[in-house]
Amino acid sequence: MATVELHGLMKHYGKDKIPAVKDVSFSVKEGELFGLIGPDGAGKSSIFRMLTTLLLPDGGNATVAGYDIVKDYKAIRNRVGYMPGKFSLYQDLSVEENLNFFATLFNTTIQQNYELIKDIYVQIEPFKNRRAGKLSGGMKQKLALCCALIHKPEVLFLDEPTTGVDAVSRKEFWEMLKRLKQQGITILVSTPYMDEATLCDRIALIQNGEILTVDTPEQIVRNYPFPLYAIRSERITHLLRHLKAYENTRSCFAFGEYLHLTFKQPHEKAVASVTDYLTHEGHTGLECRQINPTVEDCFIQLMKTA
């Protein structure tokens, strides 16, 4: 049974009815770690707010834990945990006071569901008397997660929990989510970081309010339609310029120290031809090999066809 189900959900804003969410449908299974992945302004927050009953949809319908997001909003509010995007807790309350406040708000106590948050809370417990405003970004994130979990929700909505957080804290955060998943909580998480996609069970790629694709990260990568090559030389900026001008180039984008390249005509001699061309242009230290695409490659490819 699907824990979260969306059918043609729509939302527009303002007098001009600028569409933010266009006809979005997908479903999230029980106990799944589901990622909604896309850049800022793609409509991720609007979808989360509709699912947490904070916004009314302008079309379509959706259920969370079997309840309708419009009619049964009270029932949903009792069953979900939510961490909004800009969420920053009460800066002038201490860690413990914040947690206690949210526990009481949800009719529970820290002790009652301590097992659930224990893993995360022990990391911030040494600072429990410190005011939330004085915590580092990663610590704040952990505290916010504790607050969202304290009432043992059936479904957890995390809206961009890792935005603006450094790479190490992000990694730790995802490890916490994995452990929570093992406790049977269905988790929906949104992020603009494509590299986090592979950490989810299934993902939806979203751009301009439209879903590009919904699948497991592995399947999405497998569906990439072209052979993909990583290529580099000693002068990477010139390489990009030359490849963009090359006749057989379908797409070429920088990925770290390599460029990712696809050909219009991916025949056997394509690699040899491009190497010849580049050598002729004066490139040295050329390296070119076929690689497996990343989710980011898929996103770029899907964006262009959309």
Binding site: T52, K74, Y82, P84, F87, Y90, Q91, F106, C147
Partner: peptide, 13 residues
């Protein structure tokens, strides 16, 4: 501004 209003609204309170 803090975003806590969203949580308060989503809570059973």
């Amino acid at each position: 501004e803090l975003g806590t209003m969203e949580i308060l609204l989503v809570s059973p309170f």
